[in-house]
Design a protein around this nucleic acid. Structure first.
Length: 887
RNA sequence: GGACGCGUAGCUCAGCGGGAGAGCACCUCGUUGACAUCGAGGGGGUCGCUGGUUCGAUCCCAGCCGCGUCCACCA
């Protein structure tokens, strides 16, 4: 017996464990049943191991779970690979903070091995948070295949890929400017740099010419970099400076003579037209420096403090302290020529939040340009489809202009780069130290000490291998053969470059196949005001808290329903509440079935139902299943949610159940029996259709209303109904019934007939077919429309309120209650509307161009519309006349 | 500077060539045996603006206005 009230918390407990114990999450189950079951595979965007489930994860994983549950029910060998990402910087930072907070030794004091051990300790103790939370969300991923980007198998894949790319010269070492994060003292990739608008200043400095013949003015937003200037550039065709090219200025403070050079980099339109060149600390200046073979003076240490390349007074100063001091010194020298306050964008480390510095170091790079070509082609050729399709343009744009990818990080937590340096700096890149030694021995002819590269790889390097490394690559495993390429990747568009593009490049290069056939980008979740949720803003909605408050099913349904093609979702508690009510509605519909003994009838065949109502709902079910199947197959999640919502609430509950009541309580035992079985059958369809989105309530109800032979709902077969079960006659009849009941209800409310009062209905001008329908459903109509009886007549009785239903006119006899003036107004309004419609349509049909050019069915449709409007108008006009007679 | 997206009912959004829909909110009525986390009914929109294409434009095209995001650049 179902509880009277629906309590999500009560039904959610235990269900997940039963699913997991049943083996439903693994594809082996489907394969045992059918060894030829088509595979369907997906890999989870691995959440950071440090993470906890935020609303974005909730959305992303709900959608994946909807898909995998749907495909599983469709009988596919459905595999959803799960796992976590070691998240280099994020994790290292978190453990460092915890060490500091606990008053422990810092990372550097601890030393590398001890620190990394601490991180593993932390991972073992607390790394499982997000994984537990995924279970809470109902995610039906295959835990037996859970992976971690730093586990042994994935590490093997990483080493293999690195070494192979190195041997193919697609990974190389280079000394060039990188984005340096002074907080973490590591290089970061271009993608990890955020441009942030800040208040700043634009300082104009005069650099005196060495021969004392004058000065040249340059401008900068970073005055401290002048200590590393090695030239001043002017545009070659700039007449103002032509005579100075080749001369030198004496760099203030430093006293170093530096040349005035001609380079296109200098823009005559900007500032003075002359620009200071600091090759070691500016990306543009670096290129100028290369062109002119200028000295590159690195003036910073890894903490962005000034180093020994600058005058003693500045050494060891923080860059911002030095900045102030340089300005003061320039001013004291009388060389400050102006200060402007400006807003400009300054590069910040996205994780550290500090200003990053262009910094000259040796780093490892991937030649992304080469790897990008097949990845571009695969999308051009449709081997991988990005949805919504307009993301393909963004993808192409980035891929076609891709820059070398800096993959080394000066961190400790991550995949250590498999490169060993010999005493002379020669590098041996091999998968193991043993192989590196062997290579070194061969090269040197004797055993020389080797030192492994201290750096680790960018986290995205290992996540880039995720779709195939998790399936066992580089080994030719059964999983790899069966499940690669994966089918669909559901992810956020914010990581299209970081992750999707890299998986495309690495996947294609190492497997020769695309990593996934379809990428579906889900929206970004924002708060009700459209602001991106963030902890600092305090506008986060915690999905776990929402699950506690409204139930997992409601949260999942809300996220699914709101995940349209739009770029962002504005989530509010109110919205979730609405969908929580939807669950309650289904619960109560099931209770109705229970109370009315609508239980599955063994051997029931929907093909054989006789009663109009049952033939009708059978057809509605066919349509709902078709729509739902199409929507889910196309990842049109919000359409799917809308379809099942309407079918359950507006079709099944609002009409089928209501219309079934008189039958269930009526005298026709055969009809009642058939209706019980049909109701139970329809409820099963409802449960199946809703299950991918709201798995808990449906699984719970399935325990009572499901087919025992089909087992748990999670693995029950998706409904396959016959189109032939759509019965046009039944559809027309029930549509008519609904229209009639709607019309009566509407009139009653508009004319303020008290809710409990009953009135007789007179139908005028009903044709034979309508009379038959009336005979069949009279009792039902009386109940639903609260009528005291239905009669057929040639004319409406005086004082009745009239309305049009098909070819007939309905007359509600409520003379004792009627407000004649109000009724006249009502009729006049209706007539006016119909008249306007008729006029417009008539005008259209009078247009020769329209009749000649519009498709025939549109013209016919308008003719019908005109006829109907005219006929209805005439009937109401007649009613209005009779009303006048009455008065 | 380049790219993408969005402006439709009070709010959030769907529709994307043939007289605009949903949910929530609002108003009225209702404790009939699934459900007041409900039921019945209702009000509310020159579909951002201006042109163009078309027999016909919320829908297609162009321009403009407003909002958002990403990329690049800013000595």
């Amino acid at each position: 017996m179902l509880d009277k009230t629906f309590d999500s918390a009560a039904i959610e407990t235990g269900v997940y464990d039963r699913w997991e114990a049943s083996g439903a999450f693994s594809p082996e189950r489907a394969l045992a049943k059918d060894p030829h079951a088509a595979p369907f595979s997906m890999v989870i965007p691995p959440p950071n191991v440090t993470g906890s489930l935020h609303i974005g994860h909730a959305l992303n994983n709900t959608l994946q779970d909807v898909l995998i549950r749907f495909e599983r029910m469709r009988g596919k060998a459905a595999l959803w690979v799960v796992g976590t990402d070691h998240a280099g910087i994020a994790t290292q930072m978190m453990v460092e903070q915890q060490l500091a907070a606990a008053g422990n030794m810092g990372r550097r004091d601890l030393g590398r091995d001890a620190f990394v051990a601490k991180v593993w300790e932390w991972k073992a103790a607390s790394g499982g948070t997000i994984v537990r939370q995924l279970r809470r969300l109902g995610a039906s991923c295959d835990w037996s295949r859970e992976r971690f980007t730093l586990d042994e198998g994935l590490s093997e894949a990483v080493r293999k890929v690195f070494v192979a790319l190195h041997k193919q010269k697609l990974i190389y070492r280079d000394k060039r400017l990188v984005n340096w994060d002074p907080r973490f003292q590591t290089a970061i990739s271009d993608l990890e740099v955020d441009q942030r608008e800040v208040e700043g200043h634009f300082w104009h400095f005069a650099y005196p010419l060495e021969d004392g013949s004058g000065e040249i003015i340059v401008a900068t937003t970073r005055p401290e970099t002048m200590l590393g200037d090695t030239a001043v550039a002017v545009h070659p065709s700039d007449e103002r400076y032509k005579h100075l090219i080749g001369k030198c200025v004496r760099l203030p403070i430093v006293g170093r003579p530096i040349p005035i050079i001609a380079d296109e980099q200098a823009d005559p339109e900007k500032g003075s037209g002359a620009v200071k060149i600091t090759p070691a600390h500016d990306f543009n200046d670096f290129r100028v420096g290369q062109r002119h073979r200028l000295p590159m003076i690195n003036i910073l240490d890894p903490f962005a403090r000034l180093n020994d390349e600058v005058p003693p007074a500045y050494r060891g100063l923080d860059r911002f302290v030095a900045r102030k001091k340089v300005v003061e010194a320039i001013e004291a020298l009388g060389l400050l020529r102006g200060i402007e306050t400006i807003r400009h964008s300054v590069p910040h480390g996205e994780r550290s939040g500090v200003v990053v510095e262009p910094y000259l170091t040796d780093q490892w790079y991937v030649d992304a340009k080469v790897l990008a070509q097949p990845a571009i082609r695969a999308v051009e050729e449709g081997k991988t489809i990005l949805e919504p399709r307009n993301w393909e343009k963004t993808y192409f744009e980035w891929m076609r202009n891709i820059e070398p990818w800096c993959i080394s990080r000066q961190l400790w937590w991550g995949h250590r780069i498999p490169a060993w340096f010999g005493p002379d700096g020669r590098i041996f890149v091999e998968e193991t130290e043993g192989e590196a030694r062997a290579a070194a021995l061969e090269h040197y002819g004797r055993d020389e000490p080797l030192r492994q590269d201290e750096d680790v790889l960018d986290t995205w390097f290992s996540s880039g291998l995720w779709p195939f490394s998790t399936l066992g690559w580089p080994h030719e495993t059964d999983d790899l053969k069966r499940f690669y390429p994966t089918d669909t990747l559901v992810t956020g568009f914010d990581i299209i470059f970081y992750w999707v593009a890299r998986m495309m490049m690495l996947g294609l290069h190492f497997t020769g196949q695309v990593p996934f056939r379809r990428v579906v980008f889900n929206a970004l979740v924002r708060d009700a005001e459209g602001v991106k949720m963030s902890k600092t803003k305090g506008n986060v909605l915690d999905p776990l808290e929402l699950i506690d408050d409204y139930g997992c099913d409601a949260v999942r349904f809300t996220l699914t329903a709101m995940s349209g093609q739009a770029r962002d979702i504005r989530l509010s508690r109110q919205r979730i509440e609405g969908y929580r009510n939807f669950g309650t509605k289904l619960w109560n519909a099931a209770r109705f079935c229970e109370v009315n003994d609508c239980r599955r009838a063994p051997g029931f065949d929907p093909a054989g139902v006789q009663h109009t109502l049952n033939r009708w709902i059978r057809g509605e079910a066919v349509k709902a299943v078709a729509e739902m199947t199409e929507a889910l197959a196309a990842c049109a999640f919000s359409d799917a949610a809308g379809t099942v919502y309407r079918f359950i609430w507006n079709v099944f509950c609002d009409w089928y159940v209501e219309l079934a009541k008189p039958i269930l309580n009526g005298d026709d035992a055969a009809a009642a029996t058939e209706t019980r079985a049909t109701a139970a059958w329809t409820l099963q369809i409802c449960l199946k259709l809703l299950h991918p989105i709201s798995p808990y309530i449906t699984e719970t109800l399935w325990a009572e209303f499901g087919e025992p032979a089909e087992g748990m709902l999670i693995t029950a077969p998706w409904p396959r109904l016959r189109d032939a079960w759509i019965d046009a006659a039944a559809e027309a009849e029930v549509d008519w019934l609904i229209a009639l009941i709607d019309a009566v209800r509407s009139i009653r409310a508009e004319t303020n007939v008290p809710q409990p009062a009953k009135a007789p209905l007179v139908l005028v001008g009903a044709e034979a077919a309508t009379r038959e329908r009336l005979a069949r459903h009279g009792a039902l109509i009386e109940r639903m429309a609260r009528l005291s009886g239905i009669e057929l007549a040639d004319a409406a009785p005086a004082g009745a309120v009239q309305f049009v239903i098909g070819e007939a006119t309905g007359a509600l006899v409520i003379a004792d209650i009627i407000d004649v003036a109000a009724e006249r107004t009502r009729l006049a309004k209706e007539i006016a509307v119909l008249g306007a419609d008729a006029d417009r349509t008539a005008k259209k049909l009078a247009n020769a161009d329209f009749v000649a050019r519009a498709p025939e069915e549109v013209v016919d449709e308008n003719r019908d519309r005109l006829a109907e409007a005219q006929s209805a108008k005439a009937k109401l006009e007649n009613a209005l006349e009779r009303l006048a007679v009455l008065v």
